[in-house]
């Protein structure tokens, strides 16, 4: 992990809420490919966009973005 890696779980939240990339992009006012680049980790959003994404999903920003990899679901149950 490099010092500037940012991890996100936008696609998990998006899948959970049944929101398409285009719907999310339209709500955020960005190009739909930008959502794809965010999900693939090829683009780090500005603080403004990160906060708007968190606001859209109605969760704190640290639920969506992290400086460390998110744990696999179920990994803490073992």
């Amino acid at each position: 992990m490099s010092a500037e890696d940012v991890y996100n779980r936008i696609s998990v939240l998006r899948a959970e809420r049944g929101v398409s990339r285009k719907d999310l992009a339209a709500a955020l006012g960005v190009h739909y490919q930008t959502i794809g680049y965010l999900e693939r980790g090829q683009y780090s959003p500005s603080l403004f966009l990160a906060l708007r994404i968190a606001e859209y999903f109605e969760v704190p920003v640290e639920i969506v973005f992290s400086l460390r990899p998110f744990p696999r679901l179920g990994s803490e149950v073992k």
């Binding site: 890696d5 991890y7 998006r14 899948a15 990339r21």
Partner: peptide, 15 residues
């Protein structure tokens, strides 16, 4: 998209 199937896999988008 990765994780789009909603199978609960983590998204570790490295940026």
């Amino acid at each position: 998209a990765p994780g789009r199937s909603g199978d609960g896999q983590p998204i570790d988008g490295k940026t």
